[in-house]
């Protein structure tokens, strides 16, 4: 047992040495270095003890190993504890050194934005596309026939005075309405027809509230049994999706040569909810689009039998919707490519 007693003394000396040594260590690196002097299997104060196992009588070896391992485990625990303490401290210092001002500006890759007209157009296309409408884009240059005559607006019709037309020749003009697209579609396609036709239109009007170019979106449905109630139902869905679920629509009589009955569609003011404000000029209602039941003369002219089919059409001013929705106060701002304007309007 003498050997074991000697071992015990040796181990308690090592233990007290480790205790006093640990107090002097100041970093996890020094803990790591010191650990080696203890555990290294050749030179370590504890590690090397295991090498001496051979010299121990066989019957004492188990006890010897047990004692050494006890110290080893004890020391390992101390080292781990120290190590963790230092690592925590070091981490804390590193964090502190890396302190930033989180209110400084973000690092950004600058993003560009779609034009308000495109945004509105996309919203409208989404709504009607999901309801089975295809998108037909006509040409900006049209003939007198498609822009007027086929839309029940012959040459002597006073409704021609409603629009100031840019002419390119006797026959060709800049379309004044996307309604021109209706005729092309009805000539090419037989019912059922569900289209929307977005595009630029032109009128000889250039003042504070008018731009000689603006955009419209025409809608057309021709099928069996289509009624004014269907028009109202469709437009209800549309305005709710564009202006909000709590908005309601109002139809009131109007006149377009190619629809009969013709209506103006007003929405309840989404700013004041009908109480009356500047936006709705105190009326509680805002005019957003024109619509109506397709005039049977127009259907007939396109070779569609009005006794079998009926339909409705509507025309939306894209800029008008954009201006209402985003509160843009001057239509001309939409065509000036001023980045301060374009970057304000986002999806």
């Amino acid at each position: 047992m003498a050997d074991l007693n000697e071992l015990s003394e040796k181990l308690s000396a090592i233990k007290s040495e480790i205790r006093s040594e640990l107090d002097r260590l100041g970093s996890s690196k020094s803990v790591f270095e010191y650990k080696k002097t203890i555990f290294d299997s050749k030179t370590g104060k504890v590690g090397s003890l295991m090498r001496e196992m051979g010299k121990i009588p066989a019957e004492l070896r188990a006890e010897y190993g047990k004692k050494v391992n006890e110290v080893k485990t004890w020391a390992q625990g101390l080292f781990d504890e120290m190590d963790e303490k230092f690592k925590r401290e070091e981490m804390r210092l590193r964090y502190e050194a890396e302190k930033i001002d989180v209110t400084m500006p973000a690092k950004m890759h600058k993003q560009g934005y779609l034009h308000p007209n495109t945004l509105i157009r996309e919203q409208i296309v989404d709504i009607f596309g999901s309801m089975g409408f295809q998108i037909y884009e006509g040409t900006e240059i049209e003939t007198d026939y498609y822009n007027f005559t086929a839309l029940n607006t012959p040459d002597d019709h006073p409704a021609r005075d409603m629009q100031d037309t840019f002419y390119l020749s006797d026959k060709f003009l800049l379309r004044t309405q996307t309604s021109a697209g209706q005729i092309h579609v009805m000539e090419k396609q037989s019912p059922p027809i569900k289209i929307i036709s977005p595009g630029k239109v032109f009128r000889s009007d250039d003042d504070a509230t008018h731009s000689p170019m603006f955009s419209q979106m025409e809608g057309l449905v021709v099928d069996k049994g289509i009624t004014l109630c269907d028009l109202k139902g469709m437009l209800d869905v549309f305005v709710k999706k564009i202006f909000g679920e709590d908005v309601s629509t109002r139809l009131r009589p109007s006149y377009f040569p190619f629809t009969e009955p013709s209506v103006e569609v007003d929405v309840s003011c989404f700013q004041c909810h009908g109480r009356g404000c500047k936006l709705c000029k105190g009326t509680g209602w805002i005019e957003v689009l024109g619509a109506g039941v397709v005039n049977s003369k127009v259907l007939k002219g396109c070779g569609i039998d009005p006794d079998e089919y009926s339909g409705f059409a509507f025309g939306i001013g894209i800029e008008r919707i954009a201006m209402l929705k985003y509160g843009i106060n001057n239509i001309k701002l939409l065509f000036e490519s001023d980045l301060r304007v374009l970057e304000q309007i986002r999806e």
């Binding site: 934005y113 034009h115 170019m213 065509f335 980045l339 374009l342 970057e343």
Partner: peptide
């Protein structure tokens, strides 16, 4: 940014 200019 997307801009729109007159056709004429």
């Amino acid at each position: 940014d997307e801009g729109v200019h007159y056709s004429f």
